[in-house]
Nucleic acid binder design. Structure first.
Lengths: 247, 247
DNA sequence: CAGTGGTCTAGACCACGCG
DNA sequence: GCGTGGTCTAGACCACTGT
């Protein structure tokens, strides 16, 4: 008795997943209604819904209230490139991404003071960015910069201006070091609503802290991407320096 | 009517979360039974369970079948350091981590051939690692190395030998480049059982590919960490080289 | 064994999208 | 209005942990 009894909703999820991956159900197609599927599989609607929840978490199915369950079209995954390489996904204006930016001036407190290493109450420029591709948001970012380091033109600009994003991208001198902390977690209610994602798909949350050559923190960014649409890539090069080669 | 009606299970989750974060419920403490809480909140058990599922996803509550729901003690988060810095979390033998390793020889196929850039069927050394701290697993890794590059001593060794892990840590010459791809996703059934995590907490999945100075892929690693216990950190240093300073 | 969580049922009612 | 998914109920039975 090693792998026999498995929950019914897993079996159903497996079956539907198989139908999707084999093309039996095509991308964009609508699945039968939940009551229909429940009858078909001879289970209650609750059981069937928990099966769909699995597929939803895997990004294979999208539920739309009042319309139905749909097979997600193969999702173009976003690539977040770490290390300030190409500054941001937002920078990829070439990638046909619409970016809306809202700027504000806030006062440092809590996490921000420790991230930016500034005293509580320090003025910060805040950039709240949402990148879209068509209808679907692809990521959001809250970027904080010490007020005196923020490029002058970008503040008090008209908000929601893609131009601001561009100008923001060629920001100041390059940082000496970028430290990015990545974690996976369920989205906050805010995030799941702005990203138009459900509460079961996890998000990739990146905290990026950039310091200049003097060691001063010039930027702290809180980036959030839907886990089913984004990867983060980090490349490290070792120029054969201070390391000894064993054997 | 903008933000009124919210699902009952969210209210309950909020209430319990509040009780936990304010210390009203202390870490390690057992919550009342689900039927008890259901009575208390005057909801059905199903509703109450979906409230607990939220907290579980946030890592605040741990469910143990047959015993109860427990407030998680503040979890020591694992730090995965990217860029081959300190090779692995497994390397942190100092951190009191038990690591069990199982070695095997497999033949490349599918993803592995593209990751390692080797022909299908190439012999690979496979290291299947699970790191524990006390009872709870902290991460798992499947590491693949072209057979001819694998250190001789480590193969066909007695499995589950921590010594193998150590020897594995000081592997060959340092790679010239490490490329790590990070994503957040729900765990596979396998992963959630080996990591002793539930299916709602996402995992941080890292695919690491290391190449030597000649461009040959010397290692491909598939690392999986429970999202509620692990962060990955990547540090990039810019030595003020080929970059122009605008304005 | 008793008590716990895990799965499931067969309904009910509500909220949304669309014609 | 009708069909959809979203929430919820009041149970039932199974599986696991302790004594």
């Amino acid at each position: 008795m090693i792998r026999s009894m498995s929950p019914r909703h897993h079996d159903i999820a497996d079956d539907l997943r198989h139908q999707i991956t084999t093309g039996h159900l095509k991308p964009g197609e609508r699945l039968p209604s939940e009551t229909g599927l429940a009858d078909q599989y001879k289970v209650s609607t609750a059981t069937l819904r928990s099966a769909l929840a699995v597929l939803q978490g895997e990004g294979l199915v999208e539920k739309i209230h009042g319309k139905g369950n749909f097979v997600r079209r193969p999702l173009r995954r976003i690539m977040y490139v770490g290390g300030w390489g190409t500054l941001d996904p937002w920078t990829a204006a070439e990638a046909a991404l619409r970016v809306t930016v809202r700027t504000a001036t806030v006062q440092a407190d809590g996490h921000l003071t420790t991230l930016l290493r500034v005293p509580t109450g320090s003025p910060l420029a805040e950039f709240f960015c949402v990148s879209h591709e068509g209808e679907s948001p692809h990521g959001l970012a809250r970027i904080y910069i010490p007020r005196d380091l923020a490029p002058a033109g970008v503040l008090d600009d008209e908000p929601s201006c893609p131009e601001a994003a561009r100008r923001f991208a060629v920001l100041g001198p390059p940082p000496a070091a970028v430290r990015e902390t990545v974690c996976a977690r369920p989205p906050t209610p805010d995030e799941s609503s702005t990203l138009r994602t459900n509460s079961v798909t996890p998000v990739l949350a990146i905290t990026r802290v950039a310091t200049d050559p003097t060691g001063r923190v010039v930027e702290a960014a809180l980036l959030v991407f839907p886990g089913d649409r984004a990867d983060a890539v980090f490349t490290t090069h070792h120029t054969s320096d201070e390391r000894q080669t064993p054997e």
